[in-house]
Nucleic acid binder design. Structure first.
Lengths: 245, 245
DNA sequence: TCGACCAAAAATGAATGCAAATTTTTGGTC
DNA sequence: GACCAAAAATTTGCATTCATTTTTGGTCGA
């Protein structure tokens, strides 16, 4: 379990969960705080910290070579993003996802993808569609030869393209936030054993592409939500199995 | 213009945009930072600061009677919530919404309400539905006697109940965040002059209630998205008119 | 042996101090 | 009087310091 196999619909790890739709001036890397925030977020999202464990500030200060002030600022932001919990006078700990929370987060992801699909149908260019179509065929090829890694890479790329095509900065930022929160749930790995789900997912993607080709927004919206729902169920099953093991 | 008439689908002002789904320990009011964050957020959301204007830290420190450290932490969080912009070495300013951003935010609100409606259909209790039905009738009564204030109050309550009924903490938090960001756009006021929109909105609400009664999730989802789209158009029209004036 | 109790150590929350950057003011020139 | 350059004053970013709370380690007593 817990194969590090990547995550469907996650954003590019490098691009990292931009704080929010671009503030005009750029809050990115020009200040220490900005750079630190991105680093620390990656550090947490990538799973370098045990979930639920205490994370002394001193340690992180040494790790990043800075003083506590900017570090604490970054921690507050990460807490507001839902990545860590800050308990008063008791420090920060990586947020641990219970089954209920995971279900809730998945549903929001589904809602966001549904929205992205609808907006994408309104705005996507023929070229952008062609790219997605290409990725879809590549994914199908991976599926046929049981290439899990190739499949997930293409799958993730497709979902990301749909979000990009929606051309809505706040949506993209929110989507990235939730993807980061779910990053720890490496729920993708179970397609390996659950062949039925894999086939089902593939069929759903056929529907997705078809609806997108026809620019059928509401329909695509509905398909995407159900697609995520089904993925959620598969992930929950695995989770349960893992807990049982 | 800019009648302070409240906002449809905004959360209760007092409850204020909780940072995120409740961290177990509660990040709320026990620490100075937590209390300050809530205060400052309200301060910004309520429009006590001119949008786009500089907001010296010193001033806010005096205003809230604290030192710069916790204030700066709160500012970073507010920036991550999209309420203010932080320009490196140039301080904070209240985020100004251009027409494009407003459109984007409205669409996300629509997507979130669509999701809430779908989930609500799955989870809502008969009692909670009855409450919404009651609010609906009260709203209709207000509509008949052209009571704008009563109409908006009921309207807002209905949308809030739907989100609550979805029973999804991250969704509620995200919804509250976007509602706060749009708080400044007092787009509701124009029903006063746009009677057609008012009637249309009322008809849409009939559909909303009907779909909810039948627990028709996907259908309600679609109606809610279109409802928000239409509201967006009305708001945009007003915005344009205001700019023209 | 186990638990309660207490003191020392460490960690967090907030305030203050200092260097770098920006904005404002001032002085001069055309 | 408008325009531009340089210096003073503010303001921001970060480090350091202080106060309070929590945690830890050890001792005593049942």
């Amino acid at each position: 379990m817990m194969l590090d196999v990547g995550m469907e619909s996650a954003i590019d790890a490098g691009a990292a969960i931009a704080p929010h739709d671009a503030p005009p001036g750029a809050t990115g890397a020009s200040t220490l705080h900005g750079a630190l925030l991105a680093q620390l977020r990656d550090f947490v999202v990538e799973g370098n910290l045990a979930p639920g464990a205490r994370v002394p500030e001193r340690l992180l200060c040494e790790r990043f070579g800075i003083s506590r002030t900017p570090l604490r600022e970054a921690l507050k932001v990460l807490a507001s993003e839902g990545l860590i919990d800050l308990l008063p006078n008791r420090g920060a700990r990586v947020r641990q996802l219970g089954p209920d929370e995971m279900v809730a987060l998945f549903d929001v992801m589904g809602g966001l993808e549904a929205l992205a699909g609808r907006l994408a149908c309104e705005k996507i260019s023929e070229d952008a569609y062609a790219e997605i179509e290409h990725l879809h065929h590549a994914m199908y090829a991976s599926y046929l030869r049981r290439d899990l890694h190739g499949y997930f890479t293409a799958n993730q790329a497709i979902h990301d393209r749909i979000v990009s095509a929606a051309d809505n900065a706040p949506l993209a930022a929110t989507y990235a936030n939730f993807a980061g929160r779910l990053r720890r749930v490496r729920y993708a790995a179970n397609l390996d054993t659950d062949r039925d789900r894999w086939g089902e997912a593939m069929r759903e993607h056929e529907e997705i592409l078809d609806a997108l080709r026809r620019r059928a927004g509401p329909e695509l919206s509905d398909i995407l939500f159900r697609h995520l729902r089904n993925k959620r169920r598969a992930a929950a099953t695995q989770e349960t199995a893992a807990v049982g093991a």
